[in-house]
Design a protein around this nucleic acid. Sequence first.
DNA 1: TCAAATTTGTGAATTATTTGACAATCTGAT
DNA 2: ATCAGATTGTCAAATAATTCACAAATTTGA
Lengths: 211, 211
Amino acid sequence: MKNISNAVIKRLPRYYRYLDELRANGVERISSGDLSRMMNVTASQIRQDLNNFGGFGQQGYGYNVNYLFEEIGTILGLDKEHRMVVVGAGNLGQAIANYANFDKRGFKIVALFDSNLDLIGKKTRNGEIKDIEEVYDFVKNENIEIVALTLPKEPATEIAMKLLDCGVKAFWNFAHTDLEVPDGVIVENVHLSESLMELTYKLSEQSQVGK
Amino acid sequence: MKNISNAVIKRLPRYYRYLDELRANGVERISSGDLSRMMNVTASQIRQDLNNFGGFGQQGYGYNVNYLFEEIGTILGLDKEHRMVVVGAGNLGQAIANYANFDKRGFKIVALFDSNLDLIGKKTRNGEIKDIEEVYDFVKNENIEIVALTLPKEPATEIAMKLLDCGVKAFWNFAHTDLEVPDGVIVENVHLSESLMELTYKLSEQSQVGK
DNA sequence: TCAAATTTGTGAATTATTTGACAATCTGAT
DNA sequence: ATCAGATTGTCAAATAATTCACAAATTTGA
């Protein structure tokens, strides 16, 4: 399999989302041209992107919406179930645990953990919040693939290190720091404040244009 | 001012974060070489990036940490106060409102709004949660620049449209949809499920390498 | 059945981004 | 004051990503 650039990978979920919507609206087929107008990208880019993974379309016809949706889902690994836990059961952790759409896509949030005694024992959609100290054994025994880290950076770094020994394959990291992990372990960062700073950069750029 | 590529802008907040840490540790100066080793990027890229905005360093010396930190902050628009409201006061909205670091960077979360009667009136760090219907007047009268949209896509699209008429300059959009806005209005998307799909893409890629 | 209209997949051209290399300049020790 | 060592800013080269353009294949309607 050829090496797929990160730029392409980042676009796949968006295709997936648009195809899901088309599917929900009962649209059976779509051409790269029509999709490009919907999504505000070039038709050429859509075709190039998809062709990294194989020829899903047909000349003169376009792409079958359902088929392409399923194929992209498979490429994204959504055909398999992914067992995850959330470490840090504050508002952010609970927000993630409550997000119903993850369930729909095969993400099973098996448990939440926290160190805060006020939270431990609290009931959620995903069972009672457990003591953070239990997370290591839990991850080992329950075949957990993904850990969402929704806690401050100091505990996050330390806890992530310990979890590496428990067989965790991937971190979904919301902590305000870069985790250092060995090769083969995946870290996907969601740095909210950095996203907000991009926004304010654009805001101040805007205000200069106006002058 | 020359046009700065998006790739550069996306890296600035990370530089800012590392400089803040250096500063906190009392480090006065840093060379692009040392920073490149810390951050796992090339020194050339750091110098190239910074030079888009001016020459902040000095030959033979490197960069003054404090000065560079302040300069990048200014570039990112963090020298000004930004008044924002959060629309959608569920777990995610509350998580954002409670995140203390935003405050430190000049983001003032002035109010939270929701349509859920169970939430309206609830006390938070940022005052009582208000009725969503009040957000339009509030935004007009209170000089709100940024709206965080932390609600499902259907209401988000409609509410965003109405807010456009109230002088909102930027949306920080957590809803699972692409907002369509006129030129000059900024949308910064945080699509959590898309980030999680990138993660699972990498996971399934990994598992294929192993075979 | 046939021809016009579509539309893909893909090689080539273009554009953008990243890296390499080094002259110019500054630091700091003597 | 001088010089070895360090380090930037920047031009050029290399690499990567995007767009263009079109042959080949398919559909659609007469």
